[in-house]
Design a protein around this nucleic acid. Structure first.
Length: 699
DNA sequence: TTTAGGG
DNA sequence: CCCTAAA
């Protein structure tokens, strides 16, 4: 079948050899795009909330939860929680009408709308209802409200710290805060936590709670007079649920929020200070923050946590759950890589803290009991003792982080699943997120500060002037590991281990088959998707930070498999190491065939956004896939169109489902027409056009 | 930097 | 995937 340069699939005689492209100046930078881009699901928050609720319920069966106990009130076989941004709505609707070649565009705007509202309402209720329990979980004995006012003081010291949470875990006494006794600290932590939080029943969460309590409540709250409150913005107004593919018999829930200032219940003004960075900066930050990939973790069992050896691991980890080998790996890793160079030191005097911005290796951070947590950056590897204390001449940089946002999370469970199953799924997801640990990154003026040895001054942070462009990021400790087949739960553990071993710049590419989005899985599926931007509000100082946080794909003991939405699609680990990148520069990139899942995501995005907006496509569906550039996506689309236009016999490589190819052709055709309309400024009745299209297709 | 296309 | 002209 000959392929014309531009395919022309029916449209009454319309030929499109030369489709005028809209001038670049016309490129849309609509706000709605931003909407879609920014809209993230605060799923983690929901999860946390739900988990809290779970806890509550398990604690007292007589819990008086007023809200319905039933599952989310979703009545359709196939509910799609999706809200289209302007463009998308249009495109989808139109496409729907024109749904050519059978299965192409399955979205029914009407249905989507109605169900959307239903879902939203339900979720709203739901979420609200869990809010209380959450606060309880977060801090049963200290926090009275859910507002967060975690004040951090960044001491402009050179003192390197292993990682924030190591230090946060710090003791309440005057013991050295940064003595690097991670293990010991962790031990005490756990034990103590158990004692303190003995009444937490749910094992997993209990574990987490314990540690949180210890590290946050005990060490921060108690030690300091100031308050550290976790603010958990529970939900934001539903704005858009990114790309839900239609699944038979599965209900996907997307907790949606908007990305507006209203999301932040306090200090919106400060948020605004950050906002102006606008899309570009935002995107950049997200890109950076969104570090790569989370992998499915090993199955979870109460006693079976596997912890990352990375950054904040100690925060969530209990030593006893580590095997010797794990411990070894962890330790060696932390030594080998200065993973986290920012430490979260518990409050002790702002004045007394740290060294100046110069390269002084070791500065203790101690002092008055002023209650602010201190983040000390040091440019040098932490010395063993870390007890040093020196007065600094340089002024401290004070920051207050008001809240952390967590990753968007999609949960997919069969309609027939029980509420209990849903709860367990959520619980597992939450647990897995925490279990795998996080790292902290620093972003300054939209750029990630990679050099951990740089001083704040050197990084340009020595003065307040730059604080407003300072951001902290939460990053997954590990690269995402390709999801495993649901049928092979046993491999989960292996992967879990393997990922530890393979996280080197030369990590081989793991290309595992991904479940096709269109194919419902029996086991519940939890997916953490698109990273959610995280904002850190700064209280004392003029700085505000943005924080992003990628979501881990989570697997439960039943072999949960992340569904494919490109954002969660298994990604081959990419060397985060710039050097290796550079050294490889000018080399041809390795070939990375698109998986079906990726194709699906691409198709979905193009259906929505159209061709010619590859950057947007990238952002929309491949934001996390750093190895897919918009050029790649464009190229892939090109080949897809070609593939779709040739006979199946001529196709090579991994077969793409015909359904997808059909959608490719349909979208391709549609957008040709659409572009034509746009550029020609002809306001042709789309209905008629599409009707014509349908006729032709039908014929 | 992003698009659009040829290689 | 790469390379690049254009915008």
């Amino acid at each position: 079948m000959p392929l014309k340069k531009r395919l022309d699939y029916g449209f009454g005689g319309y030929q499109s050899p030369t489709i005028p492209k809209g001038p670049r100046s016309v490129r849309r930078r609509r706000s709605c795009k931003r909407l879609g881009e920014d809209s993230q699901i605060c799923a983690f928050e929901l999860l946390a909330a739900v988990a809290g609720k779970l806890l509550q319920e398990s604690e007292s069966s007589a819990s008086s939860n007023a809200e319905g106990r039933g599952p989310f009130d979703i009545h359709r076989d196939d509910v799609k929680c999706e809200q289209f941004e302007g463009d998308k709505a249009f495109g989808s609707k139109v496409l729907d009408r024109g749904s050519c070649i059978g299965s192409a565009f399955t979205q029914d705007p009407a249905q989507a709308d109605s169900s959307k509202s239903t879902v939203e309402e339900t979720l709203d209720t739901r979420i609200d209802s869990v809010l209380d329990p959450m606060s309880l979980v977060t801090d049963p004995d200290v926090t009275k409200d859910v507002n967060l006012d975690l004040k951090l003081e960044i001491c402009t010291s050179n003192r390197a710290s292993r990682d924030i949470f190591d230090n946060v875990k710090g003791r309440s006494d005057d013991e050295s805060l940064c003595d690097g006794k991670i293990n010991n600290g962790a031990d005490g932590q756990v034990d103590n936590g158990k004692k303190l939080a003995g009444d937490f029943i749910a094992a997993n969460l209990g574990c987490i709670n314990n540690q949180i309590k210890n590290r946050v409540n005990k060490n921060v709250l108690r030690n300091s007079g100031s308050s550290v409150q976790l603010k958990v913005p529970f939900y934001r107004n539903p704005v858009s649920c990114a790309s839900f593919a239609k699944h038979r018999n599965n209900v996907k829930l997307g907790i949606v929020r908007d990305d507006d200032e209203k999301s932040f219940r306090c200090n919106s003004s400060k948020i605004k200070a950050y906002r102006p960075q606008s899309r570009l900066g935002y995107k950049r930050i997200r890109k950076i923050l969104t570090s790569k990939y989370w992998k499915a973790g090993p199955k979870l069992k109460d006693s079976e946590f596997s912890y990352s050896y990375d950054g904040m691991k100690p925060f969530y980890q209990s030593r006893k759950s580590l095997s010797p080998r794990e411990r070894y790996l962890r330790d060696t890793h932390s030594k080998r890589r200065k993973l986290c160079d920012h430490s979260f030191v518990v409050p002790f005097g702002q004045e007394a803290s740290s060294e100046s911005i110069s390269n002084s290796p070791e500065k203790g951070v101690k002092g008055g009991n002023n209650g602010s947590a201190t983040i000390s950056h040091r440019g040098v590897q932490r010395s063993p003792s870390g007890k040093g204390l020196q007065k600094s001449r340089a002024s401290n940089v004070k920051l207050s982080i008001k809240s952390f946002k967590v990753p968007e999370l999609y949960i997919e469970v069969p309609e027939t699943a029980t509420v209990g199953a849903l709860k367990r799924t959520v619980m597992e997801a939450v647990t897995a997120i925490l279990r795998d640990g996080l790292r902290v990154g620093v972003v300054l003026q939209g750029k990630k500060v990679r050099d951990d040895n740089r001083t704040l001054q050197q990084a340009g942070l020595s003065e307040r002037s730059n604080l407003d462009t300072l951001g902290f990021t939460l990053e997954p400790s590990f690269n995402q590991v390709p999801p495993v087949s649901p049928k092979k739960p046993s491999t989960l553990g292996l992967l879990g281990d393997e990922r530890r071993l393979t996280r080197s710049p030369v990590t081989p590419i793991l290309e595992l088959a991904l479940p096709t989005p269109g194919i419902p899985k029996d086991p519940p599926v939890v997916q953490l998707e698109k990273p959610v931007e995280e904002k850190v509000e700064l209280g004392l100082s003029p700085s505000i930070a943005a924080d992003s946080f990628t979501a881990p794909a989570v697997a439960n003991s039943k072999a949960l498999v992340p569904i494919t939405s490109m954002n969660a699609v298994a990604l081959s680990p990419i060397p985060s190491n710039q050097k290796s990148k550079r050294s490889e520069l000018s080399h041809r990139r390795i070939r990375r065939p698109f998986s079906v899942g990726e194709v699906e995501a691409l198709v979905e995005a193009v259906e929505t956004l159209g061709t010619g907006r590859w950057r947007d496509v990238k952002i929309r569906s491949f934001d996390n896939a750093d190895h897919r550039t918009y050029v790649d996506l464009k190229d892939k689309w090109k080949t897809l169109v070609h593939t779709a236009s040739i006979s199946p016999q001529q196709r090579r490589g991994e077969p793409v489902p015909q359904e997808l190819l059909d959608r490719v052709l349909c979208a391709h055709t549609y957008w040709l027409q659409h572009q034509f309309k746009q550029s020609g400024k002809h306001h042709i009745d789309s209905q008629r056009i599409l009707e014509g299209q349908v006729e032709r297709v039908g014929a």
